[in-house]
Write a protein that binds this DNA or RNA. Structure first.
Lengths: 69, 69
DNA sequence: GCAAAATGTCAAGTGTACTTTACAATGATG
DNA sequence: CATCATTGTAAAGTACACTTGACATTTTGC
């Protein structure tokens, strides 16, 4: 698993659709992020970090190279 | 000023070219970021935050809507 | 005051984050 | 089993992050 998104979403009992709505993006975007298909924009990363009460770094677990762990 | 990038770069006595090289992007990208023309990718935001020893949030001062203050 | 370094601007191009739509697969519940 | 909610997949299109290159302007140091 590339990030904690799916795990966190499920811990809040949210559907992909709900999370997408709260973050202001499409459901497809949430799916792709959960699958690690691409990196979110800083804006979306920030919104998601607020929803989950984490820092961007905590949520997307970046290493020194700026790549996902 | 949309963010603290220029101010921080100057405080470290770095040229745009040096910062661009350290962040692994073009000088043009640094110029545009300093001017607030667009938001960095999360990867670039992370690299810059490491260079300046700040969190992404501290560096790019985002508000609740995910927009710059 | 001149030269060189640093900064800025413009424009065209590439890559990728994100959207939209449509449909298939899986899972939960009566 | 049947049905509905949820998740997944695929493909084509749009927006924007980022590059490259060429040149103009400002700043700095001798």
């Amino acid at each position: 698993m590339e990030n904690r998104l799916k795990e966190l979403r499920e811990s809040l009992a949210m559907t992909q659709e709900e999370l997408a709505a709260r973050a202001g993006v499409s459901r497809q975007t949430i799916i792709s992020l959960e699958k690690g298909k691409y990196n979110p924009s800083i804006t979306l990363a920030y919104k998601l970090s607020k929803i989950f009460g984490l820092s961007i770094e905590e949520l997307f677990m970046l290493n020194e190279g700026g790549e996902k762990i």
